[in-house]
């Protein structure tokens, strides 16, 4: 019978505690959850049918909720929603084949959680303030030189050049904010990933992997950053299971 894998969990002291916890939990559509174990690693699986599983928001949230609940008691690697294998034997074989990589990843995230930091901005306001600041600092303008010929093609280049310069200024500003974040978080020794200008409103989309015990220090650091950049909105979320720090492809 096909099985959906929810997560891979480190159960170095045996799977008894996990099995006990799973007795009180249900998978998507109310299916029972159980484990397939191999030398201190347990795959939490449910008897969902691939053909019956609907990929909707409610199920995705339920799936995430199960992983979230388990993450508070165990070190785990979340699986992608809808990861199916044809039988428990196939799952056992998968664990055997990928054992070393899974174990390495579990060790990497042991006792750690993921935190998300998004930095929002009013992009138009921010662009205007960056232009003003740059012009004040350099005494020049971000517009192209006024002495050039006034042909339609030249005007076109000027408009593109203005947009290009503004983009460069924005990137430089984002780098400044990222440097400030890194400076604040250096003491926490968090592993991090940054995505610059994820959208017009999201200046920085970043994630951190750090020990759950450092949550309050992280919040304090973000408060300081917020006061350093009052024109931006810092939104910190977590703790999450380590969704973005698992680097393995199941063979």
């Amino acid at each position: 019978m096909e099985k959906m894998i929810y997560t891979l969990i480190a159960v170095n002291e045996g799977s008894g505690k996990l099995d006990q916890l799973l007795l009180d939990m249900k998978g998507i559509s109310g299916v029972a959850l159980n484990t397939v174990c191999l030398n201190g690693i347990a795959a939490v699986v449910g008897g969902n049918n691939k053909s019956d599983l609907i990929s909707d928001k409610a199920n995705a949230l339920e799936f995430a909720g199960i992983i979230d609940k388990l993450s508070h008691g165990f070190t785990l690697l979340p699986m992608r929603y809808g990861s199916f294998m044809e039988s428990t034997d196939a799952i056992a074989l998968m664990l055997e084949r990928n054992y070393q990589e899974i174990e390495q990843n579990l060790r990497k995230v042991e006792g750690k959680f993921e935190f998300g930091l998004k930095v929002f901005c009013d992009s138009e306001k921010l662009k205007a303030s960056i232009i003003l600041k740059t012009e004040a600092e350099t005494g020049s303008t971000t517009n192209a030189s006024p002495e050039v010929k006034n042909s339609v093609f030249r005007e076109y280049v000027n408009a593109k050049l203005k947009a290009h310069r503004l983009e460069e200024l924005m990137i430089s500003y984002v780098d400044t904010v990222i440097a400030a974040i890194n400076a604040q978080l250096a003491i926490l020794q968090a592993e991090h990933k940054f995505k610059k200008m994820a959208s017009a409103a999201i200046l920085i989309d970043s994630i951190f992997l750090l020990e759950k015990g450092k949550k309050n220090e992280l919040v304090d650091a973000i408060k300081i950053l917020q006061s350093q950049f009052p024109g931006l909105d810092f939104v910190l979320t977590g703790p999450w299971p380590p969704y973005s720090f698992v680097e393995t492809t199941i063979k």
Partner: peptide
Amino acid sequence: MSENKILFNTGSLDSL
């Protein structure tokens, strides 16, 4: 989810 996941947010939740 079992706990509030928003640890810090000064603005409204509209952006989120």
